[in-house]
Design a protein around this nucleic acid. Structure first.
Length: 605
RNA sequence: GGUUCCGUAGCUCAGCUGGAUAGAGCAUCAGAUUUCUAAUCUGAGGGUCAAAGGUUCGAACCCUUUCGGAAUCACCA
């Protein structure tokens, strides 16, 4: 169970005060020890009269009275207790309470007076290490990484907003057989070229050689299989595969020439990644390399072996038996002594824990690795690390394409750089067609296209529940209507425009009390009212989607308000200022929310 | 085959962890601009929540079974 530390809000919500009061009522009249969190309070549905609703069904069991009777009594009690409760009605087992407008009006004032409304007063929470991105250094980032990077970054921002101390880490998978494959391919077919020489981004350049290796391996395997070998046998016996394995052994033996080549190629890739991360707007506090942590992993495997937690097979490979845990036997170290994926993950986890002693370690990794993380957790548990339960695999769903699977070998990968460029270009085209960038200088216009294009991409990927597989439809992603970042950005820009126009007539932001609310004002304030709970929930569930959908609701509600309620042209001065201030608060919350997703807001569009 | 996850409108997704008559966007159709940005707003049609049982005052949500889809079970990472 995740817990969060919040400081007491400056003004306790009426819902909480009512819960407490209902508990008092029940205790005094029915001798029960019910707790406040057992009282169900929700928003009243639109078709009913009222603002908040108490579900009395569950209470009937305690009181042994009819739902309607209890509802009436409770309603009367609350009306007498709270001046804010100005009316009530009972429908079946639902007690609907009407809250006086003045409560919501003063809430707007509270929002204005709260420095960072909706966010925890940092830092009061846990120390959390969050791993995300974790690229392989043998190929460029693709669509799947985009989701990973955006999710990781956004979750970190959300946890920060909830008052946690977050250390963003990236574990670079810079060693392993796949790296050796690209190195071998470059040695064979690279002509001693470099990315600079052929004028290509480093990660793309190196990625070419990985593809080249796989193509040639496939050809060689096909020849071997034609002689009657099985696929596995063909792979094992192929020259290319044997040479790659030889290279891996040389690498682990620290062969100078191999290490130098490895360094050189990895640096090409890092330069490429740096560009991609930078445009994506993601960053890290601490970078770990598998090439460092695997050694620690090997040591741990030896320790586990001597403790009798692991066992060695005849050929020398080392395993853990997790059949009692519902998992299989799992390889921890190869027969030739080289390490596998999980070896380094064990090392990394222990290393991190020794260095930082975090309360939680969150891994943002795709759900195709659910099994791997179950094993990792069990291995650490068997090795009696008390913190093994503080590991949490933030397992997100795959990104699917309308055409079907993405496969690097078949050229159906959507490259991250290409995707970002395409989004920005589309934003540029649409913005120009609408004449929205007229009058902007070149740099400002470029900046605007970037904000819109990248915003659209980020929002599209983050608005879906992270746990679910999602469909990425490139055509739909550039459609800027509906539940999209440009819609929300437009709403923000519009508010900024109103604020600019207002200041031209000396109408400045400042709270002014009004006597009552009209329906659009009230509906809008109620969305703002949910903000704090939304940020908290998103933090508990590690879900940027909750923030995204909230932002959309808020923007939509604002647009309704905007169409029905004149601001600058409103007759009453008090209401004019109230609406302007409310608009400004909405803009601030929209901006902060979208910032949690890594999406920027333009002042004009 | 074992394990895990998923199935909500034609399509893409919400549904606040069991509450009232299941909601948005796209697409389709019909409207709104002499008025603070129309990348906007208003309205209409569209549902056996995969199916069947069960638990409950109450189920899209929990349990069981069936059907359909995906991932994984590598001396790949």
């Amino acid at each position: 169970m995740l817990t969060l530390n919040f400081k007491l809000p400056t003004m306790m919500k009426i819902e909480q005060r009512i819960s407490t009061s209902v508990v008092d009522y029940l205790r005094n009249n029915f001798q029960t020890d019910i707790q406040a969190n057992q009282i169900q309070i929700q928003k009243t549905l639109e078709n009913f009269d009222g603002d908040i609703t108490i579900v009395v069904f569950p209470l009937v069991k305690i009181t042994k009275t009819a739902p309607e009777e209890l509802g009436h009594n409770l309603g009367d009690y609350l009306k007498n207790t709270f001046s804010e409760v100005v009316g009530c009605n009972i429908v079946k087992g639902f007690l609907n309470l009407s809250i006086d407008d003045s409560y919501y009006i003063s809430f707007v004032q509270e929002v204005m007076n709260t420095k960072n409304f909706g966010f925890a007063e940092a830092p009061s929470g846990q120390k959390i290490m969050l791993e995300y991105s974790s690229p392989n250094t043998n190929k460029p980032l693709h669509l799947g990484h985009v989701r990973n990077n955006l999710l990781g970054y956004s979750i970190a921002e959300i946890l920060l907003a909830n008052g946690h101390n977050v250390i963003k880490t990236n574990l670079v998978n810079d060693r392993g057989i796949h790296i050796c494959k690209t190195m071998l391919a470059w040695k064979k077919w690279g002509n001693n070229d470099s990315p600079e020489y052929v004028d290509q981004k480093g990660d793309h350049y190196v990625g070419k050689f990985y593809v080249l290796f796989e193509q040639n391996l496939k050809r060689e395997m096909a020849e071997l299989m034609a002689t009657g070998l099985s696929e596995d046998e063909a792979r094992a016996q192929s020259n290319l595969m044997q040479q790659a394995q030889e290279l891996l052994r040389k690498w682990e033996d620290k062969d100078l020439e191999t290490i130098q080549l490895w360094r050189k190629m990895n640096n090409w890739v890092y330069a490429g990644f740096e560009e991609t991360y930078s445009r994506m707007g993601v960053s890290f506090d601490k970078i770990y390399h598998e090439s460092d942590t695997y050694i620690k992993g090997k040591t741990l495997v030896e320790q586990g072996l001597s403790k009798g937690v692991f066992k060695r097979k005849e050929n020398g490979s080392i395993w853990i038996d997790l059949t009692n845990e519902g998992l299989d036997e799992k390889l921890l170290l190869r027969a030739d002594g080289t390490s596998v994926y999980i070896t380094q993950d064990m090392g990394t986890a222990v290393w991190r824990h020794e260095e930082e002693k975090p309360d939680r370690m969150i891994y943002v990794v795709g759900n195709e690795q659910d099994y791997h993380f179950n094993v990792l957790k069990e291995v650490l548990k068997k090795m009696e690390y008390s913190w093994s339960d503080s590991i949490y695999h933030m397992s997100y769903g795959m990104v699917e394409l309308p055409e079907g699977k993405m496969k690097s070998r078949e050229g159906t990968v959507v490259d991250a750089d290409d995707l970002m460029e395409e989004m920005v270009q589309t934003a540029k085209q649409i913005t120009k067609e609408l004449g929205k960038s007229d009058g902007l200088d070149f740099n400002s216009a470029q900046k605007l296209y970037e904000i819109i294009g990248m915003g659209a991409l980020k929002y599209f990927m983050l608005k879906v529940d992270p746990k679910k597989n999602m469909m990425f439809n490139p055509e739909e992603s550039v459609d800027f209507n509906g539940n999209t970042a440009p819609f929300i950005q437009y709403t923000y820009a519009r508010i900024q425009s109103v604020i600019r126009k207002a200041s031209e007539v000396n109408l400045n932001i400042g709270y002014r009390k009004v006597e009552f609310l009209n329906p659009e004002e009230k509906a809008l304030i109620k969305v703002l009212y949910d903000y704090k709970d939304t940020v908290r929930l998103a933090g508990e569930l590690l879900s940027p989607a909750i923030i995204a959908n909230y932002s959309y609701d808020l923007a939509k509600q604002y647009n309704t308000f905007y169409h029905n309620c004149p601001i600058i042209k409103e007759d009453s001065e008090d209401r004019r200022m109230f609406r302007l201030s409310l608009s400004n608060e909405v803009a601030q919350v929209v901006k902060k929310s979208m910032r949690l997703l890594g999406v920027e807001m333009p002042n004009k569009m």
